[in-house]
């Protein structure tokens, strides 16, 4: 039976969400997205370059009709900035499913949770479906869910760090208590990290830098696709118990 990944009552096939930043060009972006098998891509809202109007547009390479655009608020440090950005995103084409990310520090890119909670409340009230980038604090994650967030997206390590899943215990605690999807957003560095996140029981993984900064981004995108599938299957299969000592895999009776 096919299993769907459901966010805000919408079904998706892939549990991998990919970012579209940091690629060499839009051609590479589009190839990597395709190789990843993702159904959702994050996108940023920025000023149109009026001095160079012939610049290629992301929408010409990744069709928003065939893949779900998830507008983000990257670069916003206050609730006001984030709200303005997402309201503009919604006006662009009716995007209600959005990724909220309010940063608190330029060096660590850690989220400012006070501004994040404040923004979530307002956005939900305005009818947005809000997937929220957050710290790995279970109490704050619960508050986000109570405010109406449609997905909780804790960091596993700082954005763009590639350090892997540094907080297995907290991610597990958040997953256990949440009734909305939990998606690891930030920190994945390579395929095994994505698998670990999924083995912990997370519903999905959001990856950008680990794909875009690989020497071969398209191949890494494909690796991430399989890593997420693999981790999900392993989680569903329920792994064996760990033992301290060895146990033979071949029968020990009737030896010659």
């Amino acid at each position: 039976m096919e299993e769907f990944f459901t966010i805000a009552k919408k079904n998706f096939k892939s549990r991998l969400i990919v970012g579209t930043g940091k690629y060499k060009d839009f051609d590479q972006t589009s190839k990597a997205v395709k190789a990843s098998g993702a159904d959702i891509v994050t996108v940023a809202v920025r000023r149109v370059n009026i001095l160079n109007k012939d610049q290629p547009l992301l929408m010409d390479y990744i069709d928003p009709k065939s893949i779900t655009y998830l507008p983000n608020t990257a670069g916003c440090f206050t609730s006001e900035e984030a709200l303005r950005t997402l309201r503009l995103a919604r006006e662009m084409g009716g995007w209600r499913l959005v990724k909220l990310e309010v940063l608190g520090d330029k060096k660590t890119l850690y989220p400012n949770m006070i501004e994040t909670l404040k923004s979530t409340k307002i956005l939900v009230k305005e009818g947005f479906q809000v997937m929220v980038y957050c710290t790995d604090d279970p109490i704050l994650a619960k508050q986000l869910e109570d405010l109406g967030a449609c997905a909780i997206m804790p960091l596993a390590a700082p954005i763009g760090s590639g350090l892997g899943i540094q907080n297995k215990t907290n991610i597990t605690l958040i997953k256990e208590q949440s009734s909305v999807p939990v998606i690891v957003d930030a920190g994945v560095g390579t395929a095994s990290d994505a698998t670990i996140a999924m083995e912990l029981g997370c519903d999905g993984v959001l990856i950008n830098t680990a794909i875009a900064e690989a020497k071969n981004p398209i191949l890494m995108a494909e690796a991430m696709k399989f890593a997420v599938i693999s981790g999900r299957k392993a989680f569903k299969a329920e792994r064996m118990k760990k033992r301290t000592y060895g146990r033979s895999s071949s029968p020990e009776e009737n030896l010659i």
Partner: peptide
């Protein structure tokens, strides 16, 4: 006047 569009982002 601000005119914005979608660009690549994470």
């Amino acid at each position: 006047v601000e005119i914005v569009h979608f660009i690549g982002g994470g």
